[in-house]
Design a protein around this nucleic acid. Structure first.
Lengths: 196, 196
DNA sequence: ATATTATGTGAATGAATAATCACAAGAGGT
DNA sequence: ACCTCTTGTGATTATTCATTCACATAATAT
């Protein structure tokens, strides 16, 4: 028998196990059985700490939202120059995806969008905030003369995020067959040519 | 009893029904039962024309690949100016997604990437060709002076595709709650500022 | 020490799903 | 008209999955 721990600790373990499963096998394979195996506990014990799968989904979304997307806001609130901030956000995001492939898989899973509308709305809201954060940094870059005038901050932010998202997609799709860091560096270099 | 038709016709009907199901309910809901209901035939009849679900997936991928991604190649091979070609490809792609939301859902589904490796490789190959096609057009645009020198054709192509992909994602995720065409026009206008 | 509560688990249940099968019935050739 | 091949279907099977339950055991309060 597994040693006993408080339900708070077990909840965290279960959420981490779920994230690991999504990263390795995708949202489709995020079954109670798989989570239990990854967390090293029985299936029934999962239900001791969560009322059901939906509650695990919510907890996972909360974890991703608070621990991850808050990072960009912190960087954006710092005192560096706008372009430096953008660069840091960009490479942090890429590094994060590399480390936790489950994050983009979960956030952009059509199963979540279509099967858990309330959760999808929460996630859409967080993404909206993320877009606004980056938009603000780009707008500052334009005012300060680091970025060329005439560009639209919001559309440029969407372009940057699309770049990240598409790279992550190609990477997971190709079974991590290329060096995502190297690819990201080339994309960033070109982005600089485009926006300056 | 349903009227009898040749297996070729039924295959097309089944593939279209499958695409419709993916567009409406996502890859997770792409069950034999759902396909049969959408195609208006019995579940057993699906197996009369396909050996199994995997074969339906392959046929769907073939349909998407040949009928859709071939379009960009046709446009790219035309005699217009590079920037005009890019614009046409961009808006064709957006229009296509609007009409068949199942296409991006299927192509970018983690269920396909992780659960059907061979299919994922085929799709990755097609996407690679698509990227190369757009890269070629951008390179021509640079040579002809329509696009500013110094930009990297491949990375700029990836940026453009990421823009499309991210827009499609936000659109399906938000339950089609904004005017994608309008959004696409703003993105294109900004893209022009970036590349010229 | 004992009672109570929290945590852990194997077994069972019911629903969904992919696939198969025996049989029905139309289409086309002879 | 008869035969054969193709197409269509309801019923069935085996599997997977989410969830529940009775029972075991450790921690904590009294």
């Amino acid at each position: 028998m597994l040693e006993k721990k408080s339900t708070n600790i077990r909840k965290e373990e279960i959420v981490q196990a779920a994230l690991e499963v999504v990263g390795r096998k995708g949202v489709r394979a995020l079954t109670i059985s798989a989570i239990a195996a990854s967390a090293g506990m029985s299936e029934a014990n999962i239900y001791r700490h969560f009322n059901g799968k939906d509650e695990i989904y919510s907890a996972l979304a909360d974890f991703i939202g608070s621990s991850v997307m808050g990072k960009a806001a912190t960087i954006a609130g710092g005192s560096r120059r706008p372009l430096e901030k953008l660069e840091t956000i960009f490479f942090s995001h890429i590094a994060l995806i590399t480390e936790h492939p489950g994050i983009p898989r979960f956030v952009f899973s059509d199963d979540i969008h279509l099967g858990h509308r309330i959760l999808a709305e929460t996630l859409a809201l967080r993404i909206g905030n993320y877009i606004e954060t980056i938009t603000g940094v780009i707008a500052a870059g334009v005012s300060e003369g680091e970025l060329k005038p005439g560009i639209s901050p919001r559309e440029t932010a969407l372009t940057l995020l699309g770049m990240i998202q598409f790279t992550a997609l190609r990477w997971t799709m190709s079974n991590a067959s290329f060096d995502i860091r190297h690819e990201a560096e080339k994309l960033w270099a070109n982005f600089l040519v485009l926006v300056r």
